[in-house]
């Protein structure tokens, strides 16, 4: 399912937000959006996830405009940086609630619990989980409706090395079953061997869009991330 972004823009002020940006994402790509804090990564992903309304521009998914919510719902799963779950309820309750609302079969809940190694936490309140576990539940929840496109806003933010590796392993697993994945990171070295394409945002502008090997040799990488 192709995702086409045309002149998408959202500016909070002159340098914050996202200046008009266009690009196309083909089915099965694993794209890392890289940039410093405030570069516009989250703004871009939130617009693609219908979390914020753009000032201008269009997004089409499989030829259908994103604004046509009824037709595209379930095609995009957005996972925010901070897990947004019903804290006072258990992992299982959260997954079952969203499975019901997404009209996914209840067997999906069991699949997700199994796939994400969450069986032993099924009755634990989300409140009591570590950030890494919460993030796993959050990703699992987004997958309940089996969306072909997944958007992840800094999925490893605040996680330790082990948990970061675990999240990237999950991303690779999802990519291997054909999902299109776009995620953001402000640590490009981390995603060196992971992404199939890198997009760099700097001060609200898209300044690079190409394969990882090209990016790591580019002046932009040297300029932005030189030690």
């Amino acid at each position: 399912m192709q995702l086409v972004v045309e002149n998408l823009a959202k500016l909070y002020d002159k340098t914050r937000g996202l200046a008009p940006t266009s690009f196309t994402v083909d089915k099965g790509e694993l794209i890392a959006i890289v940039g410093h804090n405030g570069a516009g990564k989250s703004t871009l992903l939130k617009m693609l996830g219908s979390w914020i309304v753009p000032d201008d521009g269009t997004v089409t998914i499989g030829g259908i405009e994103l604004r046509n919510r009824k037709s595209v719902v379930g095609k995009v799963g957005f996972i925010p940086e901070v897990p947004n779950l019903f804290d006072f309820f258990s992992v299982e309750y959260n997954l079952k609630l969203f499975a019901r609302l997404s009209r996914a079969p209840m067997s999906r809940v069991e699949d997700i619990l199994h796939e994400f190694n969450l069986q032993s936490f099924r009755r634990s309140k989300v409140l009591s989980l570590s950030k890494g576990l919460k993030q796993r539940v959050n990703i699992g929840r987004a997958l309940l409706a089996d969306p072909p496109i997944l958007l992840l806003d800094e999925p490893t933010s605040g996680l330790d090395f082990e948990m970061t590796r675990e999240i990237y392993r999950l991303l690779q697993a999802m990519h291997s079953v054909g999902k299109t994945i776009i995620f953001s990171s402000h640590r490009p070295e981390e995603i060196k061997g992971l992404a199939t394409r890198i997009m760099v945002l700097h001060q609200s502008q898209l300044v690079f869009d190409g394969p990882p090997q090209e990016y790591f040799k580019s002046e932009i990488h040297q300029k932005l991330y030189a030690l």
Binding site: G49, S50, W51, K70, V73, G74, V76, G77, F78, P80, V82, N84, L85, F86, D87, F98, L101, S102, R103, R141, A142, A145
Partner: peptide, 11 residues
């Protein structure tokens, strides 16, 4: 807590 946005990602 962005729960409303999460709910609005469902149908």
């Amino acid at each position: 807590k962005k729960l409303l946005l999460a709910l609005l990602q469902t149908p």
